[in-house]
Write a protein that binds this DNA or RNA. Structure first.
Lengths: 366, 366
DNA sequence: ACTGTTTGTGTAATCGTTTCCACACGGAGG
DNA sequence: CCTCCGTGTGGAAACGATTACACAAACAGT
């Protein structure tokens, strides 16, 4: 591979001049510039980022660490991150931690050793253990989707408490008395918040919470399927279920189907996260759609401010509101939709809407 | 951030000794090793990959460039790649080219300038234009999913011809006479192969191809939806449809639903790619499931051989066989499944099965 | 005692950039 | 005519690792 010296020799100038042409900084005569560009082209010169990064102490890379790459929620977040990053000349490298703290730790170390300019991460664990290195190494960091106690970094997340409350009260308003929550791992902040919101939603309608109808565990299809199965096989099963993410909704559907139960006729089902396209396949899931793309763009914007040091204050927290999309699985819209997209959008209550807005307004110290 | 010199000073040895301890190469006394490890720990030393890479000319990074990150087919491929790479001490960085040749070109340049050790890519364009730099820069490269004519790189792909033939003849065998193909962009090898296989499948059953029932375009939901809509609104619409990937199957479903048509009662539908979990939601899509994970592991294995120079021969091609999973959308299994997973697995014809096997056996020059 | 090998360590060159500094040249302003 | 400043350029010192080389000590075999 050609180096800057090769180009310099070919163009009859010094390496310094080549560097100035490539980077566009400093004075270069039109004639030299022309020569250099021609030489670079001829030699297929591609600057070595490692050498550049070594000298400049900036890699131009941003890491995005997600717990589950096959989950379209996170890939949508990633598109948001990427769009903003690319617009600012940064590149995104994606890492899949697989909900494993060990993998997460390994990725964090990889990213620190690669000297990425910043990290956006949806942490897998409850403690900041595997993330401590980011703080120690002073790498600008933004948490996305999942918050973490006592971790000094900006956070962009959806309001899971309000979201769960919206879903639970939607079911309660439809007349359900026995509502179950199929939750994710309580190690994550979102799971804990969703439980709290769920309880609040029932309380709002004067319903008691039957602790036996609360279940938590891995965020995956299979886990939810077996837990819902257990729930259904007891006597006095629920008449409605809130699933804490899209995968668990599918696991729930499977458990229901295995028992010949139909949605929403026999049991109502609502969940967090839009499955995007798939949610519009029968039974047309009623979902609380989180603003995944926006979470990505916001997170990257906050990160940029940290990287460029245009903001250096206390950790900030951005809370975004989700939208309730009422389709058929909750039993509210019984007739099969024909021409329409089969979906009625209803915003969450006005109180939570108040927190939507431009960054400057929604950002608050915490 | 602490450097190797800092650690050396703290430990009372030379940088060379620190390097030997960290890399585990060369002679180091137990006492020195102990000192170095203690110092590295105390200073939170994380080696600088850029400096290391600059000297060793290896980054320890492998790039995986996929055209559509939200497509679970590609994320599954990525898990295969990652598992093999990690087992060999390499890290994977993922890039999303968005089916855009321009983005692809930008990523290729980024990866070359990052001096990644190798690249695995599912190319977006028909020509090797945007990939030429990989060849010029002599970066080990493996194509996955999509082949490319006259491009000197190993390829791992599924047998799309046989796959499409399997799907088409499955529908023909069920008695369908007017079968449509909703295809992807003919710029990609897979789209062209799927068309060829589709024609072969019909021919096998003595059916003529109605060219008006062949449609190609973008691999996305919306595009397929409008194309299928146009197809249905003509007179003499098809009685069965083959969709060339999972997204287009969803687009097809939408178009059907908008017209009040039911699957499989009014129109049968089968498609390429398993939607994983979502495919098991009604209408339980009959799919040709491609071995995505295996494609990833195979691709990475071939790439490893190139990176380590343990193989330096002519470009190889690995062709994997897919499986037909018969569910309900094709109309073959009319009763709703209850206890079972709602799926009957049928392998593609024996002839294509013959090509399954360990790498060594399936690899063939091309 | 001499040679040769194994073990252990440090010095310094090197990888490919960027960038500080010095310097040279013109033209403008005094 | 002398400065000063805006341009334009090159030399050389970093950046932080690896590694070739030199050297020294310890030990074995003759």
């Amino acid at each position: 591979m050609a180096t800057i010296h090769d180009v310099a020799r070919e163009a009859g100038v010094s390496p310094a001049t080549v560097s100035r042409v490539i980077s566009g900084r400093g004075y270069v005569s039109a004639a030299s510039r022309e020569q250099v560009l021609r030489a670079a082209d001829a030699l297929l010169y591609v600057p070595n980022r490692m050498a550049r990064g070594l000298k400049t102490r900036r890699s131009g890379l941003v890491a995005l660490l997600v717990p589950e790459i096959v989950n379209s929620f996170y890939t949508t977040v990633s598109r948001g991150v990427e769009d903003v990053a690319n617009a600012h000349g940064l590149h995104v490298i994606l890492g899949n931690t697989d909900e494993s703290v060990a993998k997460e730790r390994a990725y964090v170390e990889l990213m620190v050793s690669t000297r990425v300019d910043g990290v956006i991460i949806a942490p897998a664990g409850r403690t900041a253990d595997s993330l401590q290195l980011l703080i120690d190494a002073a790498v600008p960091t933004v948490l996305v989707d999942r918050a973490m106690d006592a971790f000094p970094a900006d956070v962009v997340r959806a309001d899971s408490v309000a979201g769960a409350e919206t879903l639970a009260s939607h079911l309660a308003a439809l007349g359900h008395r026995r509502i179950a929550l199929v939750n994710g791992h309580l190690d994550t902040s979102v799971a804990r918040e969703r439980e709290a919101g769920f309880r609040a939603g029932l309380a709002k309608h004067g319903l008691d919470v039957d602790e036996r109808l609360l279940s938590s565990g891995a965020w995956f299809v299979a886990d939810a399927e077996s837990r819902v199965g257990a729930l259904l096989d007891k006597n006095d099963p629920p008449s409605a279920i809130v699933a804490a993410n899209n995968f668990m909704a599918i696991g729930t559907l499977r458990a229901l189907r295995a028992r010949g139960l139909r949605v929403p006729d026999d049991i109502a089902l609502v969940c967090f996260d839009d499955l995007e396209d798939a949610a519009e396949i029968d039974p047309f899931l009623t979902v609380l759609a989180q603003p995944a793309y926006t979470m990505g763009t916001m997170a990257m914007q906050l990160l940029l401010e940290r990287i460029e040091r245009s903001f250096a204050g206390e950790p900030r927290e951005v809370v975004l509101t989700s939208r309730l999309l009422v389709r058929r699985s909750c039993g509210a819209n019984t007739p099969l939709p024909t021409r329409s997209a089969g979906c009625v959008a209803i915003a969450a209550d006005e109180s939570s809407l108040a927190r939507i807005g431009p960054v400057a307004e929604t950002v608050a110290g915490r």
